[in-house]
Nucleic acid binder design. Structure first.
Lengths: 340, 340
DNA sequence: CTGAAAGCGCTTACAG
DNA sequence: CTGAAAGCGCTTACAG
């Protein structure tokens, strides 16, 4: 492998000159530039990143921490986010170093420390549940942005998230527009998952703004699993007379559908259904399901762009940025109008 | 940030000694070891990876190239593979640097070159379609293993794949066991995707070993999309009298189901169905669908383990290894017996 | 417009 | 059992 010295020798210039033509860091005569470029070409020269990194303290690596478990459903989402991240990093000459917190806050801290050892130039974090107080100190002279999830206990940081509140508001408003008044909601345990909470709040706001009385029994809190989605749906169906159900998570929605099938409840004839998140199965389901779609790929792009911008600013940073991305209601065939 | 010199000073030893206690590369007296460890602790010392890498030419980074497009379905699969890879890399102190070829061979070559610049210590590649002749030279003194897909035009390399042929054989044998004799198959264009071809071959072998005549009209080749799965299924249903359908890919299966719904064809009453790949939607579909499951996470683990082993061997490598992982038939409710 | 040289933080023969 | 020193391949003041 040729190094910068070999190039300098072949081009008959100093290594400074070679370095400067590579990095464009000072003027080099056209002639010298040409000779250097030719030499690099001939020698198939590739700059040594380790040396660069040792000298400059920059690694051109960005650490990405995602919180995925074996649960396949969320995987698709984060894969799309990462695709977005990778796309813009590549475009800017950065690499993506991947870590997984497994949805465990202690593990997340560990991973961040490891990434720091690797001297990543910045971090993009989809945070696990739990207090993120440790982050401020740990990353005090590092740029980082959070994606998809606002970290708990860490106000005023850069975030790129979906507008889950607004999306839910849209979903429930849509149902209301169809004439529904008794609308159930399936969400996670309230107070445990910020994203689920946001979506729940959107539900509340839609009711409120439309002058519909909130009814405690219409909300079922269930953990993220097919089974608990099933149980929650069963409960709400047996104990109330809702005409529509809004499910805040894909996994729970699968449980809801399983219950409907077993109980012989037909969508949309017996109940209307809207789901948050547009996975491809919702499209081919019988009936195709009306969903709120979030732009996962775009979120990834935006978070990487924001991070790169922060890194360029070099501490001259202004206020933390909070990017809330619009969601879209994809109308399919899981909702019927209701005549009151 | 403290460096090795600071540690040496505080511990009253030479930097050689510090280095050797860090790496365990030569005997150091208990006393010195203790002092060094204490100093490292006090100074919160973290070895500089760039310096390590510059000196040793090893980066502790493993490049991973996956071939994903916007098509969400395959994303889940590769995410699981990566989870497996990341898990074993982490356990061994390595990091995962992620690249995406976007299913484009030229892009894949580009990505490999970039990863090489980063001086990754090894590569795990899920190859895109196309001739991989370039790999041998490009990676001549690098360890690499292929995962999920056997690279075209590159014999005798380490591979970890699912036994798609065997899985398909199981699927079709299962249908035959149920009494089916007229079994259709939906696969990709034959000759284009090795994995699809393998699955097609399993179909052929199952027929053959059971003395069932192969029938040209029972196979539909369609590109990977819901639409073409739809079209292929329509064709096969309109032109033949099959009683069972085996679909080799998840996306096409979605198209098949869409057609069945629209045409009013009931699964399993009118037709039995088996799908290759177990995504969670197949479980909650009406009816739940019988599938062939492949162990994506495990494949990731195995490929990383193999790579690490190769790297440890240091060229003393024996024959390339070809790991073919068992698949499993998950019986659900999409197949009925047929009485001949 | 360009070069010589210091130094980033390590590992590793070499020497004792 | 341990240390002094070279050197990995760069960037970047400094000097001219």
């Amino acid at each position: 492998m040729a190094n910068i010295k070999d190039v300098a020798k072949m081009a008959n210039v100093s290594i400074s000159t070679v370095s400067h033509v590579i990095n464009g860091t000072r003027f080099v005569s056209e002639e010298a530039t040409h000779k250097v470029k030719e030499a690099m070409e001939n020698l198939n020269y590739v700059p040594n990143v380790a040396a660069f990194s040792l000298r400059t303290k920059r690694s051109k690596n960005i650490g990405v921490v995602i919180p995925i478990t074996a649960d396949e459903t969320s995987n698709v989402f984060f894969m799309q986010v990462m695709q977005g991240i990778e796309t813009v990093l590549k475009k800017n000459g950065y690499f993506l170093v991947l870590s997984n917190s497994r949805e465990d806050i202690a593990c997340e801290e560990e991973e961040i420390k490891n990434l720091l050892k690797r001297q990543v130039d910045g971090l993009i974090i989809a945070s696990a549940r739990g207090d993120h107080g440790f982050v401020r100190e740990l990353l005090e002279d590092k740029e980082y942005v959070f994606v998809d999830r606002v970290p708990e206990g860490l106000p005023d940081v850069d975030c790129v998230i979906s507008d889950g509140e607004g999306g839910s508001y849209d979903a429930v408003s849509y149902l209301i527009g169809l004439g529904h008044r008794k609308i159930g909601v399936l969400c996670d345990i309230i107070g445990e998952y910020p994203n689920s909470d946001l979506r729940y709040q959107g539900y509340r706001r839609a009711l409120e703004e439309n002058g519909i009385l909130f009814c405690e029994q219409y909300v079922q809190q269930c953990r993220s699993s097919i089974e608990s989605g099933y149980a929650g749906t069963r409960k709400i169906m047996e104990e109330t007379d809702i005409t529509a159900l809004y499910v805040v998570s894909n996994v729970n929605a699968m449980g809801a559908l399983e219950y409907f099938r077993e109980a012989g409840i037909r969508v949309p004839d017996d109940i209307s259904l809207v789901i948050y998140d547009d996975y491809s199965w919702t499209k081919i389901f019988q009936p195709p399901i009306t969903v709120i779609r979030q732009e996962a790929f775009e979120m990834g792009c935006k978070s990487a762009e924001l991070l790169l911008r922060r890194m360029a600013e070099q501490g001259a940073a202004d206020k933390p940025e909070f990017i809330r991305m619009k969601t879209a209601l994809i109308e399919r065939k899981s909702c019927n109008p209701v005549h009151n």
